[in-house]
Design a protein around this nucleic acid. Structure first.
Lengths: 243, 243
DNA sequence: AGACTTTTATTTGTCTGACAATTAAAATTG
DNA sequence: CAATTTTAATTGTCAGACAAATAAAAGTCT
């Protein structure tokens, strides 16, 4: 926790950066308690408010947690998968929505990454994973399902597919790629006809994984990618035609 | 920007969440100016300090930026790739270091995802990408290179490989997987012998991409993954033997 | 002695009011 | 009309206060 007066930005940003460094480099270890806000304000020679703004910055990145009370304070947080998922999903979603990423580009990335999971998933998927996938497919087949609910179920299906690889790091990395697509997918209106086709491909994928047939799952995913992109292009065409 | 009094957490966290929602759902659009801190404190019926803590939380996630002065204020930030990269890398690095992730698991995820890039990269890589890769290989061959510098160059090589796919979303998703491995790799002491072997495999990969031969690049990456894991296991064995 | 209650000290959370720094626009001046 | 000065708005920082939570310490009763 150096008092580097060099860098740029507001005081609170500088202090946050210096504490962040201490955490990332391991100077501060998990569950270690930081000095109290008053002590920090003395160490850094700033007011308590400024220290607090710095701590809130770190809390927003889930790097620390705070507790009130006698033995309370700010503690280096053990970053767990759910926290990391949430961060990743927020960032990915915003990145896609703010950078005019075409559905084709986003789909290409998503399906390429998902296909990286299939060999592992075909080998390791548990009955639980298969059951989840089939349950979501069943939901997707029900008439009267809203487009948003269909998309949400689609995401759940693909998450189970990824989780089947039984590699938590992979699940984490894919979380953003899969979930962040949902806003883009929500622009699509799924007809009964297209839902039927998607469930058909989902069935092929699930069957392939159950049979530990990775190439078949791969082929179905490639078809699903192409089909999704064609659906999206239909929407774009229809939109342009209206204008 | 609802004034949901329901949820949990501190006031500043609630306010941050409600503004974040407004940004993610598109209620607030890019470059739009938020009300001034004083106005926000009136809207939310809290003090200015509390509003400021909320805004700092959002700034930490690069969701807003602030400017001083007459026409200043807080603006919805256009989240660009470099910002998103940085966030991703910090989160991934901490996730790996705090969750006792084995090198084997991390490597498996990383190489599976990288291999998802090779078919695209073989097709699209520019002369620039190939040049970068060869330049890094040359650096890696130089004697007297520190282990950290070798690792950094290795990361640069793999980043070029990923960028070759010419899909920015993919590059973003992979940034975490590739960069976050560096601390783990830094534990390895690379002998002259092992560096030679790694450069050899890098050469195979680059040659394969240049020849647009995706399967060959894939095979070389599989070998590289196995070799990296074996190197890491040697380190672990040596460490256990000392104890 | 042991269980329960009260007090106390510590720490974060919030509020208030003030002033500094920055910046663009408005007013002034030559 | 151009250059300069003033003004107003806004974020950044500070100081001091009190509320709320919480665990440890002290006290009390059986």
């Amino acid at each position: 926790m150096k008092k580097s007066n060099s860098s740029k930005g507001d005081l609170s940003a500088q202090i946050a950066a210096s504490i962040r460094d201490a955490i990332v480099t391991g100077d501060l270890i998990v569950d270690e308690r930081l000095p109290s806000e008053t002590e920090l304000s003395e160490q850094f020679q700033v007011s308590r408010s400024t220290v607090r703004e710095a701590l809130k910055r770190l809390a927003a990145q889930a790097l620390i947690r705070t507790q009130r009370g006698a033995t309370g304070g700010a503690f280096v947080n053990h970053l767990k998968y759910p926290d990391a998922y949430a961060q990743q999903i927020t960032t990915s979603t915003l990145l896609l929505s703010m950078n005019e990423v075409s559905i084709a580009t986003a789909c290409e990335a998503r399906y390429a990454l998902e296909r990286a999971c299939t060999p592992l998933s075909a080998e390791r998927r548990s009955p639980d994973h298969l059951a989840t996938m089939r349950a979501e497919m069943h939901r997707q087949s029900q008439p009267g399902l809203s487009d948003e609910a269909f998309c949400a179920s689609d995401v759940a299906f693909h998450r189970a597919l990824v989780d089947g690889a039984e590699n938590p790091v992979m699940s984490y990395q894919l979380a953003g790629a899969v979930e962040a697509m949902q806003p883009l997918m929500n622009m699509i209106t799924f007809t009964a006809r297209s839902r039927e086709r998607i469930v058909e491909l989902h069935t092929q994928i699930t069957d392939a994984l159950e049979a530990k047939n990775a190439p078949a799952a791969d082929a179905a995913l490639i078809e699903l990618e192409a089909y999704t992109i064609s659906l999206a292009q239909d929407v774009l065409k229809a939109r342009q035609a209206r204008q």
